[in-house]
Design a protein around this nucleic acid. Structure first.
Lengths: 200, 200
DNA sequence: GTCTATACCGCGATAGAC
DNA sequence: GTCTATCGCGGTATAGAC
């Protein structure tokens, strides 16, 4: 169902290129000309696949937002508060490790934030960031807890995009991010991790 | 010595306006036209006070960078590692609370980061962010410590710019940021804070 | 010394030829 | 499905009014 016409191929190559350039120069610092040049086509050819630059930005952001949304729903279905936090945190960290630069873009680029807040208020009213923080902090959290969660949420995501850690392998990075997150959220050190990708 | 010609006044009003607009729309999302309109002058008038947009960005970023630099040097002059960390952390938090949006800009805007990395490699070789993280993490830190420091540094700064906490008073915010920072850095809870502005 | 008028070129975006 | 041509806005730049 996806072995791909030339168009689908160009489209996905375009999104890969866009994500790479967005991470290097920011969304607003990346021109359609740069994307077109990297792909070896003209600006207008890019416009065939996407009607606006915002649409490209949205398509780049979408997969991560969707995954976050799924993790949130899974976490909310769990019974104990501890299990909810554990699942949300480990899922979040897993996403950071797997996508690296994408999650940091969500917090470090005004251009992509504008698009996310406008395009993904769906499917459950509030935006993903708010909902994720709500799962981690619980209902009516104290100010201290709300702030700690905010620090964790933004801080962890930014590590994924930091060039200093680009060379660290996934398992090591995931372990350290989890440890930092648990410490700040006041969770006990865990023995057996809640593996997010069971058969890996 | 500074009661002010019209020019100095326009210049400082311009920087205030720029910071406000940068925080709302990002550096690259803010046009010289917006700044000019807000001041009631023309684009070319703005261009009289600053030769380029980068120069405006640099002037907006400068005070915070300078203060960070001073805090770092003060901390490095202390004898014990604990005192160094305490001073660097409390100075950093104090700056976040006092400037709110400015410090979050440093971490959340590709435009201002470009300018900071290019313009403020002075006065001591490495950039301020790297040097601050070095003070907090010590020499040859473990990967776990380096990552924890990275999370604290970016996470705390982002809270200052978060609209959710714009209404919180300075003392309360400072207290919670310090608490979160100390917990993540593994510092004991403190009794008497290292007051950064003694007579306040 | 402080500002306005005006023009230049690159960027996002649209229309239409091949 | 891709390209040329064109338009309005944004950063830059200069000439000149006061």
């Amino acid at each position: 169902m996806t072995a791909g016409t030339a168009a689908t191929d160009t489209r996905s190559r375009l999104l890969d290129t866009a994500l790479k350039l967005f991470s290097e120069h920011g969304v607003e610092g990346t021109s359609l000309q740069m994307i077109a040049d990297e792909l070896g086509v003209t600006k207008a050819a890019v416009y065939y696949h996407f009607k606006t630059k915002d649409e490209i930005t949205e398509a780049v952001a979408a997969p991560g937002v969707q995954e976050l949304d799924q993790i949130i729903e899974e976490a909310r279905a769990l019974r104990s508060r501890g299990a909810q936090i554990d699942h949300a945190l480990s899922g979040f960290v897993e996403l950071i490790v797997r996508q690296r630069s994408l999650l940091s873009l969500y917090n470090s680029d005004p251009g992509i934030q504008r698009v996310i807040n406008r395009a993904f208020r769906t499917p459950r009213g509030e935006d993903v960031k708010t909902r994720m923080k709500a799962v981690l902090a619980g209902e009516n959290p104290s100010l201290a807890d709300a702030i700690a969660v905010h620090v964790v949420f933004t801080g962890l995501a930014m590590v994924g995009g930091a060039p200093e850690y680009a060379g660290i392998d996934d398992d090591t990075l995931r372990e350290h991010l989890l440890e930092a997150g648990r410490r700040l959220l006041g969770r006990p050190r865990r023995k057996r991790p809640d593996n997010h990708l069971p058969g890996r």
